[in-house]
């Protein structure tokens, strides 16, 4: 009887421990990083693949996905993170030097084909309401034809009328300036190592927001950016500590590698 009393008391104690003041996070948009998060021991879906994006949107209930853009030698745009095909796929060599027909034959080592940007547009257009996309475009790869990439990106955005649900993020101010010049409707997010230079770039060029690593900004930094009328998205959010830290800052968007855990913490 004493034992029963002890365990019951212990159980009630534990059940009472977890009460915290409930926060309202409804203004924070959740973006799955590379879909349902980058590959890990417990996530076997390749980042930027259809399966990963589908899981983020349809199963994990993310508001959108952050994906990476590459272009092949024929001008077809694909969702792929790395500059080179080897390592993650059955293919090899620099992405930008390979043809569309070659990329189509490549399989991810974890299974599945490489997904085209147009396929993502078609898939999201079939869903209601349309999920959001944060398209990361880097101009660091030497084997990619940058002018062709920008030309194709503008064409795809126009054809799909995607200005209100696709945002472009880049660490290249030149690219974002070209996109804004092509259409003022482009939602552009700049990524730079320090916040002040990001704010200056936004103010000078009319960019819409800033992408920062969660560890590089404080609550006050986020408030400062929002007070100036810009949006802020935080990445580098995967563990419990990182998620709690990001949520405390109340950014406009969180790009997360563990959407399920983020939901659980938001619900607490």
């Amino acid at each position: 009887m004493k034992k029963l009393f002890f365990y019951t008391t212990l159980a009630l104690f534990f059940s009472a421990c977890n009460k915290e003041e409930k926060q309202n996070y409804s203004n924070i948009a959740i973006y799955g990083h590379g879909g349902a998060g980058f590959e890990s021991h417990t996530n076997r879906l390749p980042a930027n693949s259809f399966k990963s994006i589908q899981k983020a949107i349809e199963v994990l209930n993310a508001d959108g996905v952050e994906v990476d853009l590459q272009i092949d030698s024929n001008g077809t745009t694909w969702l792929f993170h790395d500059q080179f095909l080897e390592g993650k796929t059955s293919g090899n060599d620099c992405f930008g030097e390979r043809s569309t027909s070659y990329i189509k034959t490549c399989n991810y080592n974890l299974g599945g084909k490489i997904f085209q940007l147009q396929e993502l547009m078609d898939y999201f257009s079939s869903l209601s309401p349309k999920p959001k996309v944060s398209l990361q475009v880097e101009l660091l790869d030497r084997c990619i034809d940058h002018s062709l990439l920008i030309e194709q990106l503008i064409a795809i955005m126009e054809v799909n009328n995607a200005y209100d649900w696709v945002q472009i993020e880049s660490d290249s101010p030149g690219l974002l300036i070209q996109l804004k010049a092509a259409s003022k409707h482009f939602q552009t997010f700049i990524r730079a190592p320090d916040l002040t230079s990001c704010i200056n770039l936004c103010s000078e060029n009319g960019f819409d927001g800033i992408i920062m690593n969660n560890t590089d900004v404080s609550v006050k930094d986020v408030e400062r950016v929002q007070a100036l009328g810009f949006k802020i998205a935080l990445f580098g959010v995967a563990s419990q500590a990182e998620i709690k830290s990001a949520l405390k800052k109340h950014p406009n968007q969180i790009q997360c590698d563990n959407i399920e855990l983020l939901h659980r913490i938001m619900k607490q």
């Binding site: 076997r44 879906l45 399966k51 899981k55 949107i57 349809e58 199963v59 209601s128």
Partner: peptide
């Protein structure tokens, strides 16, 4: 096996 929030269909993944 997961139920899609958007389409109501079951999504299966195995490996």
């Amino acid at each position: 096996k997961s139920l899609s929030d958007r389409t109501g269909k079951t999504i299966s993944e195995s490996g």
